[in-house]
Design a protein around this nucleic acid. Structure first.
Length: 273
DNA sequence: AGACGTACCTGACCGC
DNA sequence: TGCGGTCAGGTACGTC
C-alpha cells in the first residue's frame, strides 16, 4: 500500500492510537531491509511518540528524545497496529506500545526501509536532501513545473515520477494524471505547453486528494474484507486496463500498455496527444 | 548534468 | 501439479 495517499492514510490511522504513547520495545527480526536496520533501534525504547507525519512516501514518527523514526514501505510494505499481535511471515519490525497495542511493519519484498535520525537535522538527512516539493503544496504549480522541465528531454511521465522534481507521484498516479490532462506520456518534458502543464498540475493534485479520500475508505474495507484496496479496482481510468475502452472513446485498440523506464505505462493514444 | 539501465526481493499468476 | 517466465504500487546507484 505504498502510494502517497496510503502513506497519508496510514499516518492518519495510527495517529490516535500512538500519539503521546510510550514505546515499550522496538525490535527488528532481520538485519536489513533495503538498508540495514538502525544499530541503535533499541535506543527508542521508553521514549514517547510526539508526532506522526508524512514526507514524500516516508512515515515520520517523532519521538521526545529528539529522534525521528523514518519508515518507508517500498512496494509491498504495510504498517499496521493491532491489539492482539499474532506474528506473520515478513513481519520485520515490531514495536510494542505502553497502551498494549503493537505496531508492525510487514514487507514481503523488503524494498522498504527503517532509519533513525536526529529530528533537528531531518531536512539534511541523506534520504530527504534531494527530495523535490510536495505535490499538494501551493509551491507545486505551473511556474514551478515549467522551470524544472524547460531543459529536460525525458518523457513527461518519467519527469513527474522523478522525486527530485515532485515527490509522491507513483506509477499509477502518473498514468492517471496524464490521462486526465490529455497528455501523451511519451512526450519530451520540455515540449509540454504551459496550458497543458496547468492541467497536469491540477490533475495531479485532484487525483491525489481523491485517492486520499478513497484511501480512508479502502482502509476500512481492508479491515473487514480481503485486504484488496478498492481504489485500484474502482477508480483508475487507464491503469491496469490494457485493451479496455476508455470512457467515451471510440478508438479501436483501446487503452495501450507500453514500457517506460522499466515500468508499465497505460494510456489512450487517441485522447492523449 | 542528464539520460538510462540495473539491482534489490517475494509472491501471484499464466501457459505449458 | 509443477515449472519457468513475467509482472507488481519504489528508490538508489553506477555508467556513459
Amino acid at each position: 500500500m505504498p502510494e502517497l495517499p496510503e502513506v497519508e492514510t496510514v499516518c492518519n490511522g495510527l495517529r490516535n492510537d500512538i500519539l503521546k504513547v510510550k514505546i515499550v520495545s522496538a525490535k527488528n527480526n532481520r538485519p536489513n531491509l533495503r538498508i540495514p536496520f538502525p544499530r541503535n533501534l533499541k535506543s527508542i525504547n521508553d521514549s514517547q511518540i510526539t508526532s506522526i507525519t508524512r514526507r514524500a512516501k516516508y512515515v515520520l514518527m517523532g519521538l521526545d528524545i529528539g529522534k525521528t523514526l523514518i519508515i518507508h514501505l517500498g512496494m509491498s510494505g504495510k504498517l499496521t497496529i493491532t491489539k492482539n499481535y499474532q506474528p506473520q511471515k515478513h513481519d520485520h519490525m515490531v514495536i510494542e506500545l505502553s497502551n498494549g497495542k503493537t505496531v508492525v511493519l510487514n514487507d514481503a519484498r523488503r524494498f522498504g526501509l527503517v532509519a533513525l535520525a536526529d529530528s533537528s537535522k531531518l531536512e539534511n538527512h541523506k534520504l530527504f536532501k534531494h527530495l523535490g516539493i510536495e505535490p499538494l503544496d501551493k509551491e507545486f504549480n505551473t511556474q514551478y513545473l515549467f522551470e524544472k522541465l524547460k531543459n529536460r528531454k525525458i518523457a513527461i511521465k518519467l519527469a513527474i515520477m522523478d522525486q527530485k522534481i515532485v515527490v509522491g507521484v507513483g506509477n499509477i498516479y502518473a498514468c492517471e494524471a496524464l490521462y486526465a490532462a490529455k497528455i501523451n506520456p511519451t512526450r519530451a518534458a520540455n515540449t509540454i505547453k504551459n496550458d497543458e502543464l496547468k492541467k497536469l498540475v491540477a490533475a495531479i493534485k485532484k487525483i491525489l486528494k481523491q485517492a486520499i479520500k478513497a484511501g480512508g475508505s479502502s482502509l476500512r474495507d481492508y479491515v473487514q474484507a480481503d485486504g484488496t484496496l478498492g481504489y485500484f479496482q474502482t477508480m483508475t481510468k487507464v491503469y491496469g486496463r490494457e485493451g479496455e475502452k476508455c470512457e467515451k472513446c471510440n478508438c479501436k485498440s483501446g487503452i495501450k500498455r507500453i514500457t517506460q523506464g522499466g515500468r508499465s505505462t497505460f494510456y489512450c493514444a487517441k485522447k492523449q496527444k
